[in-house]
Design a protein around this nucleic acid. Structure first.
Lengths: 208, 208
DNA sequence: TTCAAACTCGGTCTGAAGGCGGAGGAAGAA
DNA sequence: TTCTTCCTCCGCCTTCAGACCGAGTTTGAA
């Protein structure tokens, strides 16, 4: 029997998952919690084998709870089960010590599978999330913008100031085509899809 | 007699202003300083009625000095007298508690006038700067929450996360045309001309 | 000298963005 | 009720962005 705790602030979701897991007799749902704080406490108390943890909850998010648990109970396998798969959620969660990372679009059997695999030490990473991780690993711990050339960084900062290609070309005394080339390279290096996301990147990483 | 202190790191400028002010007998120049730090100290000590303060000085800028003085001597009227009239200088200065804002292109009589008016509680704002303030009052200073409707704010935050119109329409369950309408309204209300600048706005104002 | 990287610029093409004008429905205020 | 604000959506149109091609320059390292 795999001892499991489910942490999710949406009762419907929580009950649904539990109901499903109980249809398989190798799971033992030993507890449930509706917030990160509550969850962390419960986990440390009951020491389950596996935890299904939502991110983005009302009282204390899943990342904080994960960190807290991993400090005191590193053997516990925490599976993140969330709707989000953007960088802002994935990396902090993994750094916090999450064992697997699933999306709520996953099927019930996939979730059950992930729990069984976690119990025997196998990580499961959602394909969409795996992509993020791969690109991140290629650049190691380096921030993505460290791979940018000086010129590209200049252009990126201009984007971060909300400038258009035309304005950038005038400021840097280069052709608008050249600016476009730089922008394209920046977008692929930073793994974002348009200049707006690049601008967001600038501010999130406090480059400006 | 209006007790005045002049703070400017350029000795020539400082002496020039003082020399001129002394030709009118209603001014009493009680002190002068060549840096923000020195100026703040002197002001708190001598408690003048009006201060002529430069921005951008070597040791401690005028904005810091202004903040410091206003905390302990809010009755003191600080007139900013500087060469710059861009957003980076104007708004922080006013928020710091500056009473009037003049440019160094102002004539001597205008400066003298501003001092007299400050002494009786009248603000003087340089026309060029006033323009900045007006547009700012329509957008930035109202902090967006007042100008934008709730829905528009939702859309703005999505933009601040780098989402496309398509993605926003899916998230908010509305048509892409509707998103465009909101975006257009947001752009005009914030006085920016594309979504990238809107995203920058979001982060500069720490709405995310 | 050879090679790679970085910066520059060109053309073409597709889709997204955004301006402009209009319009209907819902809800609340006068 | 009438009026106003807000949210919703439509079509038409222009411009910008960005992808995908290729290619010339310089500089510095191998």
């Amino acid at each position: 029997m795999i001892r499991v705790i489910v942490v999710d602030d949406h009762e419907i979701v929580r009950k649904g998952i539990i109901a499903y897991l109980q249809t398989e007799d190798e799971f033992d749902i030993v507890g449930e919690a509706a917030s990160g704080n509550e969850g962390a406490e419960l986990i440390l108390q009951l020491k389950p084998d596996v935890v299904l943890m939502d991110l983005m909850m009302e009282n204390g998010n899943g990342i904080e709870a994960t960190k807290q648990v991993m400090e005191q109970l590193p053997s516990c396998k925490i599976i993140i089960l969330t709707s989000y798969y953007d960088d802002e959620q994935v990396f902090p969660a993994i750094q916090a010590g999450a064992f697997s990372y699933l999306l709520k679009t996953s099927s019930a059997t996939e979730i059950a599978d992930a729990i069984k695999k976690a119990a025997v030490g196998e990580n499961v990473i959602e394909p969409k999330v795996a992509g993020k991780m791969m690109t991140s690993f290629r650049s190691e711990n380096k921030k993505a913008h460290d791979t940018l050339t000086e010129r590209e960084l200049e252009v990126l900062l201009c984007i971060g100031n909300g400038m258009t290609n035309q304005e950038i070309s005038e400021k840097l005394y280069i052709g608008i085509k050249t600016v476009k080339t730089h922008v394209s390279n920046i977008l692929s290096k930073l793994d974002v899809h348009d200049r707006t996301q690049a601008a967001v990147y600038v501010h999130r990483n406090q480059l400006l």
